[in-house]
Design a protein around this nucleic acid. Structure first.
Lengths: 239, 239
DNA sequence: AACCATAGGTGTACGCTGTACACATGTCAA
DNA sequence: TTGACATGTGTACAGCGTACACCTATGGTT
């Protein structure tokens, strides 16, 4: 008899299948639960089998980053630099929103995988095509920082408010006394102050706001013919 | 005889000593080697002893963040909002440069320790004192993001160039073919192209450049009386 | 002075992690 | 048919955070 019926001849693992399984697993159970053991189990294989395809966990994560970055759209053709870059970064953002854990992994990488360099290289090229000097482009890329990946580090996501209304009211009073300005911001635009505390922000708006402040600033410097001889107090009119 | 001579009556641990030892240990051996076991050893104590002073490792790291943030200078008095905020953030930067691992720990926190809220609250207050609306202040704080802590995520620090000149030349050629724009930036202002690849950037300059682009943008929006009813395409003149 | 509650330190043990190393198996070339 | 090579297995180890039971020294009360 054909042993393909008996033991259904498993397709052998390969690097790509391992990496895609890792992405799927992280999507499902979160990045902190992505362990070599869990991943192996999901692939129906013993942990050490993975090491035939990735050198170690670091390289696995490098590969995962490659996959995510591969989901970013190529640059739009025909748009001016500002719109093209804006669109591209927002595409990166969409990719990273599909995998919420990805920003953390990107930031943890010690050296950039090739696709990452591709992306950065192409982004730089978009500024250069817009007429930016090498120097200004350099600084502008630094200024974008991790925002070029479509995320801002959400420093301290607001914890969910306590369910008990009494506890919530008490907590609100204490916070208002201790951090009046934070409360002022958190409750802005709401008449029911207390309930608004845990309301959260429109992340997409905040992201675009910051991105546009930066892009507008870059445009202004570019138009003014900024050059790195203005190195002291770089962008400031005052000095 | 006094047993204080015989067994030199050790001073008991307390939360503060534990936290400061943790900071010192991380400074010495790096954050990845800061384990409960290593920390205990450094304090001449058994690992579990630490748990009488911090609930778990997460809370230890919270406490470590408290100490770092405590090193940030209080706001300057009498300066205008822009200079005051600039100075404060640069002070935060100095604190974080003293502990290179700290940014990573700050970003890994799930909820903000009180001193962190203090800092943010006070920074918000500085914008408000400068006449910023609640709304604009809100967005502006988001736009600063982790830069308010004085760091930009250094995405992918450049690895040191290989020692062997032949290898270096070969690598340079390959990089130049594959990532021409990156190479263009990396070698800008240098005539000896190859050797400039690993030269690195003036991080302080890059940080201040980005900070000033943002602060200048904020100032412009503020002067123009930006209000959140301009919510679509927030900062853009075009639409 | 005797007592005892309590805070602080100890020792052991468990489950989890990444991964080194030796081994088995399955597939293709000679 | 034989052997080489790629792939998957099994066992084992060191390190991690930390639960739990225990001991000990200190300080206040009787």
């Amino acid at each position: 008899m054909a042993e393909s019926a008996q033991a259904p001849r498993r397709v052998p693992l390969n690097r790509d299948r391992v990496l895609r399984a890792a992405v799927a697993l992280a999507d499902d159970v979160g990045i902190e639960a992505l362990s070599m053991r869990n991943l192996a189990e999901r692939l129906g294989v013993v942990p050490m089998a993975l090491y035939k395809h990735v050198a170690n966990k670091e390289e696995l994560l490098d590969g995962v980053v490659e996959i995510i970055v591969g989901e970013i759209d190529p640059p739009a053709q025909g748009a001016d630099w500002k719109d093209a870059i804006r669109q591209r970064i927002l595409s990166a953002r969409r990719a990273l929103l599909r995998h919420r854990w990805a920003s953390q992994v990107i930031e943890s990488r010690l050296h950039a995988p090739p696709v990452v360099l591709d992306y950065m290289n192409s982004l730089i090229g978009m500024f250069r095509a817009g007429g930016f000097s090498v120097d200004l482009t350099h600084h502008v890329m630094h200024a974008l920082g991790s925002r070029m990946w479509g995320f801002t580090q959400e420093v301290f996501p607001t914890p969910p408010p306590p369910a008990d209304p009494d506890v919530r009211a008490a907590m609100f009073g204490q916070l208002a006394a201790q951090y009046p300005y934070i409360i002022e911001i958190a409750t802005a635009g709401s008449h029911d102050e207390e309930s608004a505390v845990g309301r959260g922000c429109d992340d997409q708006f905040e992201f675009e706001f910051a991105l546009d402040v930066l892009l507008d600033g870059f445009e202004r410097l570019h138009q003014q013919g900024w050059s790195s001889t203005d190195r002291r107090r770089a962008t400031r009119a005052s000095a």
